[in-house]
Amino acid sequence: MPSTGKDPNLLVGLDTSDDAGVYKLTDDIALIQTLDFFTPVVDNPYDFGRIAAANALSDVYAMGGKPLTAMNLVGFPTETLGLEILAEILRGGAEKVCEAGAVLLGGHSVEDKEPKYGLSVTGIIHPDRVLTNAAAKPGDVLVLTKPLGIGIITTALKAGMASEEAEREATAVMSALNKDAAEIMQEVGAHACTDVTGFGLLGHALELAKASSVNVRIFAAEVPVLAPAREYVRYGLIPAGTRRNLKYVAQFTRFDDNLEEEERIILADTITSGGLLISLPEEKAARYMELSREKGLNAAIIGEVIPGKGNLEVYKES
């Protein structure tokens, strides 16, 4: 298990760009700590609150833990936007914290020209059950628990070009907790995990590969994608962050010559509140998929872990 600094109780720190910090309190309890906040990705303030809260809670789930407490982080322009809008944001966040089984303790707000919202979250886990991005093993398969395309759809939304159906679909994906996905992964015995957010699937897969000193092979045809995203990317509705992601990962990635540019962009798409990318033994993958279907999750086996030195291989098909 990775360790940073001189304190032996610091189980996960800065070493491997993991999703949260983990600090051992006793032989049976470790704290998971994380925070995240951002500007609105949808127009509805209530939905924005739900999405931002689900996104912050996801880091605890990515470590295999259970959220315990949360605190609001708020930046808000009180002089230009009504407090009823802030109330709706906070209502959405509070409901999502409650759904996670955690307790909202309070928080802090500052005056800001642009609305920002998120959570500081503390979770708990047994020290021996912490999942990191640094323990993927050759022979593992990779499971992704939510579809891609969020960044492209929200960019279309900002441009006034997204359909209401696309907005509803993207909102449903972003506001869904990774709670069930994390519980199943602990039940079947995964080796490693990270959640897919701003760096896109390829960026977070690359972090997992480097932290675990392996190569990751992804099969684009197996990756679930929200259908409107494929349409919008052809219109050029591509986030600047997605282009930066693709440019960065390209230096560490071998792309199949048959892979179209549009497919590469989707795989690198910057995501808000995405799914978990889970590395687990091949013999446990069928059980994970079975339990996922029972919970109604849109999980898919999208790749495999092979020997290597921290690089990616992306093929069109397996």
Rank of each mutant, 00 (worst) to 15 (best):
L31C: 04
Q33T: 10
A52Y: 00
T26S: 14
L31H: 09
V41N: 04
P40T: 02
D59Q: 14
V41P: 05
F37W: 13
Y61H: 08
Q33H: 03
K24A: 10
T69G: 01
F76M: 09
F76E: 05
Y23G: 13
Y23T: 11
G21M: 15
A56Y: 00
V12W: 05
L68P: 04
D43I: 06
Q33N: 11
G21I: 15
D36R: 09
S58R: 02
L68M: 13
D27Q: 12
F76R: 15
I51G: 00
T69K: 09
L10G: 05
D47N: 10
T16N: 15
Y23K: 13
G13Q: 09
Y61R: 05
T78H: 12
D27V: 13
F37V: 02
D47A: 12
V22R: 13
T69S: 05
V60N: 03
Y23D: 08
V74A: 03
V12N: 06
M71N: 07
A70I: 00
D59A: 15
A53N: 00
A56V: 00
T80G: 03
N44E: 13
Y23I: 14
G13W: 14
D19S: 06
L31I: 13
A70W: 00
G75M: 11
L73R: 13
P67I: 00
V41R: 05
V41G: 02
N55Q: 11
A30I: 03
A70M: 02
S58T: 07
G21S: 12
L57C: 02
L11A: 03
Q33F: 09
A20I: 04
G75T: 11
I32F: 10
V42Y: 05
T69N: 07
I32H: 05
E79M: 12
P40C: 08
V60E: 02
L11D: 01
V74D: 02
Y23Q: 09
P40R: 06
T34G: 02
G21W: 12
G64F: 15
V42C: 07
T16E: 14
Q33M: 09
F37N: 10
N9F: 04
A53W: 00
V12C: 08
A20N: 07
Y46A: 02
F37G: 01
E79L: 09
V22C: 09
T26Y: 15
P45M: 04
L35T: 13
F37Q: 05
K24M: 14
T39C: 10
I29K: 08
N44C: 08
A56H: 00
